[in-house]
Simulated scan of single mutants.
Amino acid sequence: MSAQDNYDKGRSSNKQGKNARKKSMARGNAPLKSESPKKNTGRQQDPAKPKLKFDKTGKEIGRREKPVREVKKSNPEDGIRLNKYIANSGVCSRREADTYIATGLVTVNGKIVNEMGYKVQLTDDVRFDGRRLNPEPNTYILLNKPKGFATTDSNAKGMTVMDLVANATTAKIKPFGRLGRNATGLLLFTNDDEFVQKFTKKGIPRLFHIELDKNLKAEHLKKIKEGFTIEGKEITVEEISYVDNSPKSEIGLKIKHTGNSIIRTIFEHLGYDVVRVDCVTLGPLTKKDLPRGRWRTLTEKELNMFSMI
């Protein structure tokens, strides 16, 4: 076979020899030059972040300070939307509240309000169909009152019983019933207007331990038990007796009045000075496990017991 034949055979088999033409690198066929990765010479510090410190081993010292994000707080003085106030009281949903507001069934401080988006304060008198609403859960606090505190929610009276229950709840509670500044014993606080109205009208029986300046005469004890009239007003009590194993100047007296001024009225009319007054029981409640000056929240069982009074 001639040299020409060998040449032709190599072309037909598509084999390239040593002198075969190399692939052209023109027209974009050249490979991209790979960039060599930059050598990491250490931690990169973002200029916007607080500077960090490291010890000789490269360990970070301290910790990054987190940026403080300002949170906008709501101002309670801005009020609460009327429909939310109604919904929070448990009457209905917000959507339904809007309907009731539009139809004129809601009043605020005695005036009908049918404006959507109207805002009220927690201290406002909001009523739905004549019934006063309360957007807070009903709360009941029992205090064993010490001497020297006025039974009022006014700051103008010096030290008050409100100072003693300041940390009991965030609800707007008020004292129900009264005890004189120097009287001691059980005092109830609540924000339940229906409870207050009910028992203001019918009264809650309260047992008082009373100390007089002298022994109570038997005829006076009998007179108080039977009832009598002072300045045209009939005075009645539930029970009265001498305290067992004590001088006859110490009396147990049960009354249904929500105040305690009636106690001084009774005994001063008969010629006695009241030295000490202590409320021992209030309805079904007692002072058991409640030291002087302390408070506690009523249990569900105790609340149910009031329905039997």
Rank of each mutant, 00 (worst) to 15 (best):
K157R: 14
G158C: 08
G158P: 07
G158R: 14
D163A: 05
D163P: 06
V165Q: 13
N167D: 15
N167W: 02
A168H: 11
T169M: 01
T170M: 07
A171Q: 12
K172V: 00
K172F: 00
G177I: 01
G177D: 00
A183Y: 00
L187H: 05
L188Y: 02
T190V: 04
T190K: 04
D192P: 05
D193Q: 08
Q197H: 03
T200C: 03
K201L: 09
K201H: 13
K201M: 08
K202D: 11
P205Q: 10
L207I: 10
F208Y: 15
F208M: 10
F208I: 11
I210D: 03
I210M: 06
L212N: 12
D213E: 07
K214H: 06
K217R: 15
K217I: 11
I224N: 07
K225N: 13
G227S: 11
G227T: 12
F228A: 10
F228W: 14
T229P: 01
T229R: 12
E231N: 15
K233M: 09
K233D: 10
I235D: 07
E239C: 06
E239W: 02
V243E: 14
V243G: 06
S246M: 15
P247V: 08
P247K: 13
K248L: 05
E250S: 10
E250H: 12
I251L: 03
I251Q: 02
G252D: 08
G252H: 05
L253R: 08
I255P: 02
K256C: 04
H257Y: 08
H257K: 14
T258C: 00
N260P: 07
N260Q: 15
S261R: 15
I263P: 08
F267D: 05
E268F: 02
L270W: 02
D273T: 14
R276F: 14
D278K: 15
T281V: 09
T281K: 13
L282N: 05
G283P: 02
T286I: 03
K287V: 08
K288H: 08
P291D: 12
R292N: 10
G293A: 03
L298I: 01
T299M: 09
E300M: 12
